[in-house]
Simulated assay, not measured.
Amino acid sequence: MAADQGQKAIAIKRGSGDIATIMVGVNDQRIYRASVVKRGYYIAFLLRLILDSTATVRKTGRSTAIAKYGTWSNTAVNNFGVTTTLKSAKATATVSGTAVYIGSIIQNHPAAKGVAQVRIDGVLKGTISSDGTGDGGMTTANGLAYGPAAFRFGGLSPGNHKVELTVTSANGQNFRLDYIAGNANQTGVKTFVSNVIRMNAYGYAKFGGSDSSVAAFNADIATLIDTLSDDGLDAFLVNNWAAINPATHLLPDGVHPNPAGHSKIYTVFRSAILAQL
């Protein structure tokens, strides 16, 4: 699932000329199904996966580039994030671009419902939350109860912007901050993101999910890629949904691609990559 892969991807170092491919969502849609809340978690996890490839210039929580007020401590699951349980704690940084990205962690835990208001140039733009307990929780099929996530605030004028996060949740609730970034001057790699392939009737009946759930996930993925492309990031949609026929391209479990299915996925990714080189 996207949260599982996001935690693994944090450690990946990418160099100039590398290409990233991302294909997650089959397990997310069969576990989260029709839940709008959980699909929201998935998109936050997927956004983080994409940004960790395409938007690598950021100001991290532990760096002096983010000014912190109140009590903050180091996050346990990575070497750059911070967390606070103090209402009114603040973090500020100046970044450049027409969009701001905030990296955080969503966790399914009663003490991880921290919420922060986001102001950009003094204007309240919304809130972000570390709360992953909604609608039964974001815990993955592998049992991971947290995941690296990201949130976007767009529609800004070009140039520098002061970003201020103010914790508004009650004392004792964890709010987690990994980084603050803008979309300008990013040096990440070209990233190719597959939409979700369908399972067949046997797979849906045995493992969960549905064609309608896949369609809802794919609509959100397409919107996300369009948004990031408009931001100027090198993120590209790969339409494996159209290439995989559930009747002929899956193993007997009705979920995983068979050799013919893998060949189709290879061809679709390769064509999308070559079109951008």
Rank of each mutant, 00 (worst) to 15 (best):
I19V: 15
N185A: 15
A216V: 11
S130F: 01
H249R: 15
S213Y: 15
K206R: 14
A260E: 14
H161K: 13
V26L: 09
A205N: 15
H262F: 14
K59W: 06
R48Q: 08
M199T: 12
P110Y: 06
Y146G: 00
V196S: 02
V238H: 04
S130W: 02
F80M: 03
K38E: 09
G143N: 09
K125Q: 15
R39G: 07
Y69C: 13
I128H: 05
F80C: 00
Q117E: 14
T223D: 09
I10C: 10
I265L: 07
L177K: 03
Q186T: 10
A272Y: 07
G209N: 04
G40T: 08
A91G: 02
F192W: 01
V268D: 03
P158C: 14
H161F: 14
G254F: 03
W72G: 02
K8I: 15
G147A: 07
K68D: 06
G254T: 05
K206I: 12
N27T: 02
P246Y: 05
G103A: 04
K13Y: 00
G155A: 06
N218G: 05
S212I: 15
A44R: 12
V36C: 07
H109Y: 09
Q5L: 10
P257I: 04
I128G: 04
S229L: 11
L251R: 13
T84M: 09
T191R: 11
L251K: 15
K264H: 10
V196L: 02
G81L: 06
M138D: 03
G182C: 05
G134M: 06
F207D: 12
T75P: 03
P110N: 13
L51G: 04
F153T: 03
D4Q: 01
A184N: 13
L250E: 01
G209F: 01
V123M: 10
L156A: 08
A275R: 06
A149K: 09
I12M: 00
G15F: 12
I105R: 01
V255A: 10
V123D: 06
V36L: 12
R33I: 08
